[in-house]
């Protein structure tokens, strides 16, 4: 592991040294070519300006196209989405009515709920025992 790290550090150092040497070697040539009063330099500057203008125009056109297309695409996506169904499914998944009921339920509501549940259980018990008495041949 250390060998690999050492190799990586040496590689980076070598790259930096090579870059500095290349920069020193090409600096006189680049300075000569890019002088404003030099013909080649003027050509290069004009080319750069043309490129800059082209880039700006292309960027403006792209922005305009983007602003035209995105609302249409977004509207289409929203139209194809069944938001009502989606919301309903999410609300059912998290059991929103239960959360609301628990968080806002009053003592009276809880009492009524308990009475209902107890009555239903009593119904089941009555049905079970009358079934056992009246229909003993039935199992389950």
């Amino acid at each position: 592991m250390d060998v690999v790290l050492g190799l990586a550090v040496e590689s980076v150092r070598a790259g930096l040294r090579a870059g500095r040497r290349l920069h020193r070697a090409t600096r006189p040539v680049a300075g000569f070519l890019l002088r404003p009063d030099h013909r080649v330099g003027q050509r290069l500057l004009a080319l750069a300006e043309t490129g800059q203008r082209g880039r700006k125009v292309a960027l403006d056109e792209l922005t305009a196209a983007y602003r035209k297309v995105v609302p249409v695409v977004a509207a289409d996506v929203v139209r194809q989405l069944d938001l009502a169904d989606l919301v309903t499914e999410v609300a059912a998944e998290i059991d929103l009515p239960e959360i609301i009921r628990v968080s806002t339920g009053s003592v009276a509501a809880e009492t009524v709920r308990d009475v209902r549940v107890q009555s239903m259980r009593a119904d089941e018990a009555v049905a079970y025992w009358t079934g056992r008495v009246l229909r003993p041949w039935r199992t389950g």
């Binding site: 059912a92 059991d95 009921r101 009555s119 239903m120 009593a122 049905a127």
Partner: peptide, 24 residues
């Protein structure tokens, strides 16, 4: 797929629509 939202508590949902018994 149809999803029904109901205010009925979870433990009572299975009973809904069934015939009520004598005690209730």
């Amino acid at each position: 797929k149809r999803v029904w939202l109901t205010p009925v508590p979870e433990e009572a949902r299975a009973w809904q629509g069934r015939s009520a018994g004598l005690v209730s």
